[in-house]
Design a protein around this nucleic acid. Structure first.
Lengths: 343, 343
DNA sequence: CTGAAAGCGCTAACAG
DNA sequence: CTGTTAGCGCTTTCAG
């Protein structure tokens, strides 16, 4: 254990300490090429003794190879994204690649900044949420010279590859399930997020499918900020006060749905007889509520894993450079809040 | 819009396109030094036209300066950590610094790997969860030559700086509050995590404070995996079946506490008369439950913000290099599940 | 205000 | 199996 060095250690120091050339030290430390076991040990000992940590900046510059993968998501607080990240992390587990996360707060301006910043590190790949980006961002992605995977959403054209689900279709499917069960007076609650394109697409798919059946949403409400559970509770109460005839409530996420569910249970409302409910996401957290909310799985960790795999494949030695589109199909889980006539 | 370049663009390309020397182009792009408005515009135009993105790898190597801050946390799925990250992110918002996150899965071995990997990028700072690290990890931190802030926990000696709360004290405070209200038959439920030192310290502080009052925990149970809400529900049911005399249940986190709460409400148990409950964390998510669980705020985003601020200060021009310890004091919120005799 | 030279710490490519 | 020679793309430093 020596004192903290004023100047960080370099290969040269290890070379000097071990009496082996810098080049061979480099080989040992990277497990590249053949090195005799004797010198190997000398080098390893010296490196450990000194506490040498290689400088990847220099290494990356020299080798033109960076083991970083840029992952750009809107937020950490949406639960969905940490799960995607876990999927990505797991997929990179036994590979040299390492995710680096950037946050956009759902703002195109920030997305541009973050993307620029990340690309300036010349990552081995980019995983970015959504298909909607500013022209500048799309241009950067197209010119990045590294594989790009757009995730979560598949309703649109990707710059390169994409992995996700069709949120439009997810909304449609839920609408169809609701119609099939005979619900007719429908309310919708969601987040007030003009920039959450996926929520918007679900909503559009939902309303369109209803329209085809001649049904129109009778009430809608949007919130922003605060505890989702509490908001779901409030909004549900107010909505039913405004329009007591509603027989189905569709929530844009499971948390507000759960708030609504808890409220209605307290009110002694018959669910799903009198009022049916459904959310979106398949949040594991909610298992353990008195009743299970109907929902639709968003395939979060699968998406992360598949996206990471594409990056891995594209960085493999035999890589083809082919882009790829993976469309996952979410399934409805009916839980206890959506009637089921048959089966 | 040109075709995708085979070779990434360099300063040289911008220099050629603008007819300005590489050096001056560099100055313009970094806003350093005085450059005439005329050349400035020429350079900016050329850069934008080409879609040039600077290569920070080369920049970092040349300037010996990296604007990255390593943030090392156990997991994304604990909710707590995303919140800390948000705090860090916010604090770095208007600074050149950028967090890069690494995940340890609560495993010392992975912590070492991740730390090594991150240090090899020569970050401008390290923010790392907890005070317990392997000897190798501590050695790396000590020799990193960059500010290190250990966060979340303050029960122990930091390598450099620390920001957090005393979990031991948090456990004690909760025990005192419980004792004061006259509860005597106490059960504990938590996660089965030998490596979650903070949960362990809370538990220790809790049991010690009880012991001083001559009280011993009568039942305890630990879970791992699955939905916390559901586990809390199950564990609570079983614990009360085993020992119906319990009059207080202390949970190591709010989610299992909420599961217990929902279960007891369903059972028609009088809370907090018959049984009192408390969790830990102050999870905003839970607002909106039928009743508010007593809990203790873990100061998550404050911790992130304060840690980031320390890194910022240490990287400032007039930095003193002084280390710093910030001990935040969490407050109990009694909610509806812990009796309050006075006030 | 602008430019030329030197080199950051490492690795590719080639010799031995 | 080991060493030497040139850079990687940028910024520092020093001259104009």
């Amino acid at each position: 254990m020596s004192d903290r060095p004023a100047r960080p250690l370099t290969l040269r120091d290890v070379s000097a300490a071990s009496g082996v050339s810098e080049m061979t030290v480099s080989r040992v430390l990277r497990n590249r090429g053949d090195v005799s076991e004797a010198t190997r040990q000398k080098v390893l000992d010296a490196a450990k003794e000194l506490g040498y940590v290689p400088n990847k900046i220099a290494g990356a510059l020299a080798s033109q190879r960076v083991n970083l993968v840029a992952v750009i998501i809107p937020s950490f607080s949406n639960m969905v994204f940490p799960e995607v990240l876990s999927g990505i992390n797991a997929a990179f587990e036994n590979s040299p690649l390492q995710p680096v996360v950037g946050i956009t707060d759902y703002q195109p301006g920030k997305e541009e900044e973050v993307l620029y910043e990340m690309l300036s590190w010349r990552p081995s790949g980019v995983i970015i949420a959504g298909l909607e980006h500013s022209d500048a961002a799309r241009a950067m992605l197209a010119a990045a010279g590294t594989p790009v995977v757009e995730i979560m959403d598949t309703d649109g054209r990707p710059v390169d590859s994409m992995v996700g689900i069709s949120h439009r279709r997810a909304g449609e499917e839920m609408a169809k399930a609701i119609i099939k069960e005979g619900y007719e007076h429908i309310g919708f609650m969601g987040t007030k997020m003009p920039l959450d394109h996926r929520a918007r697409k679900r909503f559009e798919g939902f309303t369109e499918a209803l329209a085809k059946a001649g049904i129109e949403i009778e009430e809608r409400d949007f919130y922003s900020g605060g505890s989702a559970l509490a908001k779901g509770r409030e909004m549900t109460q107010h909505m039913l006060e405004r329009n007591p005839d509603l027989d189905f409530l569709y929530y844009s996420n499971d948390l507000i749905g759960a708030g609504g569910l808890l409220y209605l249970i307290e009110q002694g409302v018959d669910i799903p007889g009198e009022v049916g409910l459904a959310g979106f996401n398949g949040v594991e957290l909610l298992q353990g509520l008195p009743r299970q909310l109907a929902t639709m799985d968003a395939c979060r960790s699968e998406i992360g894993a598949a996206a990471a795999q594409i990056i891995l494949d594209r960085n493999a030695d035999n890589a083809t450079g082919e882009n790829k589109s993976v469309v996952l199909t979410p399934t409805i889980s009916f839980g206890d809040t959506l009637r089921r006539h048959r089966r």
